[in-house]
Design a protein around this nucleic acid. Structure first.
Lengths: 96, 96
DNA sequence: TATTTATAGTTTATATTGTAAACCGTATTA
DNA sequence: TAATACGGTTTACAATATAAACTATAAATA
Protein backbone atom coordinates (compact mmCIF):
# COMPACT_ATOMS: atom_id res chain seq x y z
CA UNK A 1 0.00 0.00 0.00
CA UNK A 2 2.56 2.58 1.11
CA UNK A 3 6.07 2.70 -0.24
CA UNK A 4 8.91 3.22 2.19
CA UNK A 5 10.12 6.78 2.50
CA UNK A 6 13.91 6.94 2.33
CA UNK A 7 14.71 8.30 5.79
CA UNK A 8 17.71 10.18 4.49
CA UNK A 9 15.47 12.25 2.25
CA UNK A 10 12.46 12.36 4.54
CA UNK A 11 13.96 15.17 6.58
CA UNK A 12 13.00 18.78 6.08
CA UNK A 13 16.49 20.19 5.82
CA UNK A 14 18.05 17.39 3.80
CA UNK A 15 15.09 17.46 1.44
CA UNK A 16 15.57 21.21 1.05
CA UNK A 17 19.24 20.75 0.23
CA UNK A 18 18.42 18.06 -2.32
CA UNK A 19 15.68 20.18 -3.79
CA UNK A 20 18.12 23.05 -4.32
CA UNK A 21 20.77 20.80 -5.79
CA UNK A 22 18.48 19.01 -8.19
CA UNK A 23 17.56 22.26 -9.90
CA UNK A 24 20.77 24.26 -9.57
CA UNK A 25 23.27 21.49 -10.30
CA UNK A 26 25.86 23.16 -8.09
CA UNK A 27 25.52 25.26 -4.97
CA UNK A 28 27.87 26.41 -2.28
CA UNK A 29 27.44 26.24 1.46
CA UNK A 30 26.48 29.88 1.85
CA UNK A 31 23.88 29.68 -0.89
CA UNK A 32 22.32 26.64 0.78
CA UNK A 33 22.36 28.39 4.11
CA UNK A 34 20.60 31.43 2.70
CA UNK A 35 18.00 29.45 0.77
CA UNK A 36 17.13 27.10 3.60
CA UNK A 37 17.50 29.56 6.46
CA UNK A 38 19.02 26.79 8.59
CA UNK A 39 22.01 27.21 10.88
CA UNK A 40 25.48 26.45 9.55
CA UNK A 41 25.95 23.65 12.08
CA UNK A 42 22.82 21.90 11.01
CA UNK A 43 23.66 22.25 7.34
CA UNK A 44 27.17 20.98 7.88
CA UNK A 45 25.86 17.82 9.53
CA UNK A 46 23.22 17.17 6.89
CA UNK A 47 25.58 17.78 3.97
CA UNK A 48 27.94 15.27 5.50
CA UNK A 49 25.15 12.67 5.70
CA UNK A 50 24.09 13.21 2.10
CA UNK A 51 27.70 13.01 1.04
CA UNK A 52 28.31 9.79 2.96
CA UNK A 53 25.29 8.27 1.26
CA UNK A 54 26.74 9.20 -2.09
CA UNK A 55 23.84 11.46 -2.94
CA UNK A 56 25.95 14.58 -3.27
CA UNK A 57 29.57 15.41 -3.98
CA UNK A 58 31.31 17.97 -1.81
CA UNK A 59 34.31 19.97 -2.92
CA UNK A 60 36.22 22.27 -0.65
CA UNK A 61 38.20 24.99 -2.31
CA UNK A 62 38.71 28.72 -2.22
CA UNK A 63 36.94 31.76 -3.56
CA UNK A 64 39.69 34.33 -3.44
CA UNK A 65 41.12 33.83 0.01
CA UNK A 66 37.92 32.55 1.61
CA UNK A 67 37.11 28.88 1.90
CA UNK A 68 34.26 27.68 -0.23
CA UNK A 69 32.37 24.41 -0.03
CA UNK A 70 30.58 23.47 -3.21
CA UNK A 71 27.96 20.72 -3.41
CA UNK A 72 26.52 19.00 -6.39
CA UNK A 73 24.19 16.09 -6.80
CA UNK A 74 25.34 12.72 -8.05
CA UNK A 75 23.36 10.42 -10.29
CA UNK A 76 22.61 8.29 -7.24
CA UNK A 77 21.23 11.39 -5.60
CA UNK A 78 18.97 12.15 -8.53
CA UNK A 79 17.71 8.58 -8.53
CA UNK A 80 17.09 8.63 -4.78
CA UNK A 81 15.22 11.90 -5.05
CA UNK A 82 13.04 10.56 -7.85
CA UNK A 83 12.32 7.37 -5.92
CA UNK A 84 11.41 9.45 -2.91
CA UNK A 85 8.93 11.49 -4.93
CA UNK A 86 7.33 8.31 -6.25
CA UNK A 87 7.10 6.88 -2.73
CA UNK A 88 5.58 10.09 -1.41
CA UNK A 89 2.87 9.91 -4.01
CA UNK A 90 1.66 6.66 -2.49
CA UNK A 91 0.78 8.72 0.58
CA UNK A 92 -0.62 11.74 -1.20
CA UNK A 93 -2.60 10.37 -4.13
CA UNK A 94 -5.45 9.36 -1.93
CA UNK A 95 -8.30 10.46 -4.18
CA UNK A 96 -7.93 9.33 -7.77
CA UNK B 1 11.54 29.57 -0.80
CA UNK B 2 10.56 26.46 1.13
CA UNK B 3 7.40 26.22 3.19
CA UNK B 4 7.60 24.67 6.63
CA UNK B 5 6.64 21.02 6.81
CA UNK B 6 4.26 20.39 9.70
CA UNK B 7 6.38 18.05 11.82
CA UNK B 8 3.32 16.18 13.01
CA UNK B 9 2.56 15.13 9.46
CA UNK B 10 6.13 14.82 8.29
CA UNK B 11 6.49 11.39 9.83
CA UNK B 12 6.15 8.23 7.80
CA UNK B 13 3.69 6.46 10.07
CA UNK B 14 1.55 9.46 10.96
CA UNK B 15 1.40 10.44 7.31
CA UNK B 16 0.29 6.90 6.49
CA UNK B 17 -2.45 7.04 9.10
CA UNK B 18 -3.63 10.41 7.81
CA UNK B 19 -3.49 9.16 4.24
CA UNK B 20 -5.74 6.24 5.14
CA UNK B 21 -8.16 8.40 7.06
CA UNK B 22 -8.49 11.08 4.43
CA UNK B 23 -9.75 8.57 1.90
CA UNK B 24 -11.64 6.12 4.10
CA UNK B 25 -13.33 8.61 6.41
CA UNK B 26 -13.32 6.05 9.24
CA UNK B 27 -10.92 3.26 10.08
CA UNK B 28 -10.31 1.11 13.11
CA UNK B 29 -7.03 0.34 14.83
CA UNK B 30 -6.68 -3.10 13.29
CA UNK B 31 -7.31 -1.81 9.79
CA UNK B 32 -4.65 0.85 10.27
CA UNK B 33 -2.23 -1.72 11.62
CA UNK B 34 -2.76 -3.98 8.63
CA UNK B 35 -2.51 -1.22 6.04
CA UNK B 36 0.59 0.39 7.51
CA UNK B 37 2.32 -2.77 8.70
CA UNK B 38 3.51 -0.92 11.78
CA UNK B 39 3.53 -2.35 15.28
CA UNK B 40 0.55 -1.75 17.56
CA UNK B 41 2.69 0.17 20.03
CA UNK B 42 3.93 2.57 17.43
CA UNK B 43 0.44 3.09 16.03
CA UNK B 44 -0.99 3.67 19.47
CA UNK B 45 1.53 6.42 20.17
CA UNK B 46 1.05 8.12 16.82
CA UNK B 47 -2.75 7.98 16.96
CA UNK B 48 -2.56 9.63 20.35
CA UNK B 49 -0.41 12.43 18.94
CA UNK B 50 -2.74 13.05 16.00
CA UNK B 51 -5.67 13.03 18.36
CA UNK B 52 -4.04 15.49 20.77
CA UNK B 53 -3.42 17.82 17.84
CA UNK B 54 -7.09 17.63 16.96
CA UNK B 55 -6.38 16.11 13.57
CA UNK B 56 -8.31 12.92 14.24
CA UNK B 57 -11.11 11.82 16.52
CA UNK B 58 -10.76 8.55 18.37
CA UNK B 59 -13.68 6.51 19.64
CA UNK B 60 -13.28 3.45 21.77
CA UNK B 61 -16.15 1.03 21.72
CA UNK B 62 -16.89 -2.61 21.15
CA UNK B 63 -17.37 -4.89 18.19
CA UNK B 64 -19.25 -7.77 19.73
CA UNK B 65 -17.26 -8.42 22.88
CA UNK B 66 -13.93 -7.18 21.56
CA UNK B 67 -12.72 -3.65 22.06
CA UNK B 68 -12.59 -1.54 18.97
CA UNK B 69 -10.86 1.80 18.45
CA UNK B 70 -12.22 3.80 15.56
CA UNK B 71 -10.48 6.83 14.11
CA UNK B 72 -11.76 9.48 11.81
CA UNK B 73 -10.33 12.68 10.53
CA UNK B 74 -11.52 16.07 11.68
CA UNK B 75 -11.83 19.15 9.51
CA UNK B 76 -8.66 20.46 11.14
CA UNK B 77 -6.97 17.24 10.08
CA UNK B 78 -8.09 17.63 6.49
CA UNK B 79 -6.86 21.22 6.45
CA UNK B 80 -3.51 20.23 7.96
CA UNK B 81 -3.09 17.46 5.43
CA UNK B 82 -3.86 19.79 2.56
CA UNK B 83 -1.45 22.40 3.87
CA UNK B 84 1.20 19.75 4.21
CA UNK B 85 0.76 18.70 0.59
CA UNK B 86 1.07 22.31 -0.55
CA UNK B 87 4.22 22.75 1.55
CA UNK B 88 5.73 19.55 0.18
CA UNK B 89 5.25 20.81 -3.34
CA UNK B 90 7.63 23.66 -2.61
CA UNK B 91 10.32 21.01 -2.21
CA UNK B 92 9.28 18.79 -5.10
CA UNK B 93 8.29 21.13 -7.89
CA UNK B 94 11.84 21.88 -8.75
CA UNK B 95 11.53 21.80 -12.51
CA UNK B 96 8.60 23.76 -13.88
C1' DT C 1 -12.63 -25.45 35.05
C1' DA C 2 -7.82 -24.31 35.00
C1' DT C 3 -4.48 -23.23 31.45
C1' DT C 4 -3.00 -21.77 27.26
C1' DT C 5 -3.40 -18.91 23.20
C1' DA C 6 -5.18 -14.99 20.72
C1' DT C 7 -6.74 -10.31 20.27
C1' DA C 8 -6.71 -5.31 21.09
C1' DG C 9 -4.45 -2.11 22.61
C1' DT C 10 -1.11 0.90 26.17
C1' DT C 11 3.08 2.03 28.63
C1' DT C 12 7.94 2.42 28.76
C1' DA C 13 12.66 2.17 27.77
C1' DT C 14 15.92 2.70 24.23
C1' DA C 15 17.92 4.00 20.07
C1' DT C 16 18.05 7.36 16.55
C1' DT C 17 17.86 11.84 14.87
C1' DG C 18 17.69 16.74 14.51
C1' DT C 19 19.37 21.01 16.03
C1' DA C 20 21.84 24.80 17.75
C1' DA C 21 25.44 26.34 20.78
C1' DA C 22 30.05 26.48 21.19
C1' DC C 23 34.04 26.27 18.89
C1' DC C 24 38.16 26.70 15.26
C1' DG C 25 40.88 28.98 11.76
C1' DT C 26 41.57 32.64 8.75
C1' DA C 27 40.68 37.33 6.94
C1' DT C 28 39.44 41.91 7.38
C1' DT C 29 38.76 46.21 9.82
C1' DA C 30 39.39 49.68 13.48
C1' DT D 1 47.13 44.23 17.68
C1' DA D 2 42.47 43.86 19.21
C1' DA D 3 38.05 43.24 17.70
C1' DT D 4 34.82 41.64 14.32
C1' DA D 5 33.30 38.92 10.53
C1' DC D 6 33.15 34.90 7.69
C1' DG D 7 32.97 29.93 6.58
C1' DG D 8 32.52 26.14 8.41
C1' DT D 9 32.92 21.78 12.11
C1' DT D 10 32.30 19.48 16.49
C1' DT D 11 29.51 18.42 20.32
C1' DA D 12 26.04 18.26 23.59
C1' DC D 13 21.33 18.18 24.19
C1' DA D 14 16.51 17.84 23.07
C1' DA D 15 13.09 15.72 20.54
C1' DT D 16 11.34 11.69 18.14
C1' DA D 17 10.46 7.18 16.57
C1' DT D 18 10.14 2.54 17.60
C1' DA D 19 9.56 -1.88 19.54
C1' DA D 20 9.63 -4.65 23.64
C1' DA D 21 7.21 -5.51 27.50
C1' DC D 22 3.01 -5.26 29.52
C1' DT D 23 -2.38 -5.18 30.69
C1' DA D 24 -6.93 -6.80 30.05
C1' DT D 25 -10.27 -9.61 28.12
C1' DA D 26 -11.98 -13.44 25.19
C1' DA D 27 -11.77 -17.79 23.08
C1' DA D 28 -9.97 -22.34 22.70
C1' DT D 29 -8.20 -26.47 24.72
C1' DA D 30 -6.80 -30.09 27.83
Amino acid sequence: MFKELNPLLHSELRLGIMSILISVEEADFVFIREKTGATAGNISVQIEKLSEAGYIEVNKGFLGKRTRTVCKMTQAGVAAFEDYVVALKSYLDVKQ
